[in-house]
Write a protein that binds this DNA or RNA. Structure first.
Lengths: 213, 213
DNA sequence: TGTACATCAGTGAACGCGCGTTCACTGATGTAC
DNA sequence: TGTACATCAGTGAACGCGCGTTCACTGATGTAC
């Protein structure tokens, strides 16, 4: 009983986040009204303001949620890849392939990146949200760089690249690829870009002359 | 006399576009009000609606302007590079270097991509604007692919890649790189990504073992 | 050259709508003694 | 176990502001005859 109520209560807030995310990715933050969110959730406007002090707080919660979900998803993916290969490079390459496959399994074009969506938005809540996004990006940079350093111990780079930049390239390519795939309505574009990134990483550590993996 | 008047008249419309672009890149389209645009330009609201039937028409004009400017800029850049080298690969690599240098010469982080800004916006004008952006992206894909095909005649690819995807990678990397550089407030990030892309293109056509260019 | 009309680049006032936000209140459930 | 109070998850009504849009009008310049 108690747990059911708590769940139902928790799920209202959760429902607001779900509905808001979908609408914001489709139309942008400013163009998504609280009115339409509460109509879809089946709640009054005051109910919304019970959960979020103001609209910009919704943006913050949405970005935090997106970051958390993304982290879990990618962690699982690369962990699964590493279980298949104990070589750090091969594990990474398999992880990228799994990522590309997951992206092409999506029914439609990628729903979009809430970070990018909010990056092109109002200054009011920008400070908080930008800081949140920034620390997430830096965390990914660190994670990838450490992996590259590990790989480099076994495979001295054939092409001298800055590992931070190579790490950022992944984030940038995904964000940019989402935009391109949405504009061109081509859902294969994003996984193709990830596979191209994979080709580059392989060339960096294995060179272009080595046997294909 | 006549021309002065025409210039002054033309410059009002131009001023609206300039002011609007800056504001939209900073805050997003929906968060930029007509009121603030006309205040900055020094015009009445009716004056705005004389030039643009409605607000979504402003978005369309802005995207068209951005596409045109970008085309001129990049054309000049690669033409200048080709004048220095008649080898298609070396010309392309020099062009990418010039592009990266131009990006790092900007005083601040990149102002942003109006196409991406508008991609995360309202459905109302999406159709027109998305089509406009899409055809611009396809034009760039074609331009880059033809260049790669030309290069491939002299330098058979060492890494088998899809030239369309390799062309898209450039557009995606720039759009994504702009987002990253704005969030991380790091103006060097974007040119670094362009140089990394250059490394990849070189590896594709020259391999990783060849002498540096 | 003078006059009549047309066009260009706006002005000024008014509009209704819907947005985000506030605030006093409520009814169901949980907790202390 | 019963009662009193606290908390949680909202409700309902009202608010003022500013947004995009409309429309009748205007004054300066251009064009025809």
């Amino acid at each position: 009983m108690t747990s059911t109520v708590l769940n139902r209560a928790g799920s209202k807030r959760e429902r607001i986040l779900e509905v808001a995310e979908e609408a914001i990715l489709a139309k942008g933050f400013a163009a998504t009204s609280i009115e339409e969110i509460i109509t879809a959730v089946g709640i009054t406007k005051s109910g919304f303001f019970y959960h979020f002090p103001d609209k910009s707080d919704l943006a913050k919660a949405l970005v935090q949620r997106y970051i958390d979900q993304e982290e879990v998803l990618l962690d699982e993916m690369f962990q699964r890849a590493d279980e298949l290969h104990d070589d750090p490079l091969h594990g990474f390459l398999v992880g990228l392939k799994l990522l590309a496959e997951m992206m092409s399994d999506l029914p439609n074009t990628h729903p979009g990146c809430i970070i990018a969506s909010v990056c092109y938005q109002d200054q009011l809540f920008n400070r908080d949200v930008v800081e949140l996004s920034g620390s997430a990006l830096l965390a990914w940079r660190k994670r990838f760089r450490e992996r590259f350093e590990l790989i480099a111990q076994h495979y001295p780079p054939k092409i001298p690249v800055d590992f931070d930049a190579l790490a950022d390239m992944m984030s940038g390519l995904v964000d940019g690829g989402i935009i391109l795939s949405r504009i061109l309505k081509d859902k294969d574009l994003l996984p193709k870009q990830v596979m191209l990134y994979r080709d580059f990483v392989r060339a960096v550590f294995l060179g272009s002359g080595e046997a294909r993996l």
